[in-house]
Computed example of a mutant assay.
Amino acid sequence: MDKVAFLAASRHGRAPFVTASSKKIDFAAPAFEGEMVEVTGRVVRVGTSSLEIEVELIAEAPVSGERRLCTRGRFTLVARKGPDTLLPLPPLALNPTAKPEGVLRLAEMVFPGQTNHYGTLYGGDALRMMGKAAFIAATRRARAVLVMASSERIDFTAPIGEGDMVELVADVTKTGRSSIHVTVELWSEALLSGARRHAATARFTLVAVDAEGRPTAIQLA
């Protein structure tokens, strides 16, 4: 939750932030093994050099789609003074930009343990992130037990540096009798400047299976 608060603050303020405090963290329900967990952060208050972020953690049953709030908390982050910090921080947006429906978006942070000797994200870690995004997008569409059948093509177009944020955009492009095809784009974003660049695209095929592991028809609502 703290990582999501940090990413939300960095995207809003475009400054080097540190967590100053967390308060009123409510644990409302458990999240179980095998469930998807969605963590969202939104800016609720802006000061001269500080931000307050509300973070919610919601568990979702993959097959039924049932969702429940598990945890909610508030975090205060402060912008460190320096040449990259512009104060006061931007005001709170009155009309946040709506995200297109049907497209899954995931955000991750690139940490030192995920980089190679060039200081850029390992291709294997990028593929793992993209595969997870494809699985979640496909499961939300099919509401069935799915397994990965293939990754048809992966194109790496730019490196992603340590400390960058990565955003994964997954879109279901085709649904067959028992298969579902997902295209995933990976974008890197510099937290201070907001500069974005397309880093990779991959296409995945997932197949719905029954209790015996055999392909079964997808029943779309």
Rank of each mutant, 00 (worst) to 15 (best):
L106I: 14
K99H: 14
L106S: 12
P62S: 08
I53H: 05
D26R: 02
L86V: 13
T40A: 05
L92F: 10
L51K: 09
P88E: 03
L51S: 02
R72H: 01
P88C: 05
A59V: 06
E101Q: 15
T76M: 11
A61C: 11
L94E: 15
G65E: 07
P91N: 13
K24T: 06
V103S: 06
F17R: 00
P90T: 06
D26M: 04
A29K: 11
V63H: 04
L92P: 07
F17I: 07
P88H: 09
M36L: 11
P100Q: 06
E35G: 07
T19L: 14
L69A: 08
K23Y: 10
S50G: 01
E38A: 05
G65H: 05
F27A: 05
E56D: 10
F75C: 02
I25T: 14
D26V: 01
F32I: 06
E52L: 09
E38M: 04
P100D: 05
K99V: 10
P83I: 11
M36E: 12
A61Y: 09
E101F: 09
E33W: 06
T48E: 12
G34R: 06
L77P: 03
V55M: 06
I58A: 08
L94Q: 13
C70Q: 00
I25G: 10
G41N: 08
A93K: 14
A107P: 06
P100T: 07
R42T: 04
A28S: 03
R67P: 00
R105Q: 14
F27D: 04
A29H: 09
L104K: 01
A98Q: 13
A79F: 07
T76A: 05
L104C: 00
V18R: 02
V39D: 00
E52S: 12
C70Y: 00
A98D: 09
T19V: 14
A28G: 02
I58T: 15
A93C: 09
S21T: 12
G82E: 08
K23P: 00
T97M: 13
L104S: 02
A59F: 07
R68F: 02
V39R: 05
L87I: 08
E56S: 10
A59G: 14
E66A: 15
L104T: 01
A98M: 11
V63Y: 06
L89N: 00
D84Y: 11
P100A: 00
P83M: 09
V18P: 01
V39W: 03
T40S: 10
S22Q: 15
R105F: 15
G47S: 13
S50M: 04
V55P: 11
F17W: 03
S50H: 04
P91H: 13
L106M: 15
R105W: 13
R67I: 01
S21K: 08
V63G: 01
A31M: 06
S22N: 14
I53Q: 03
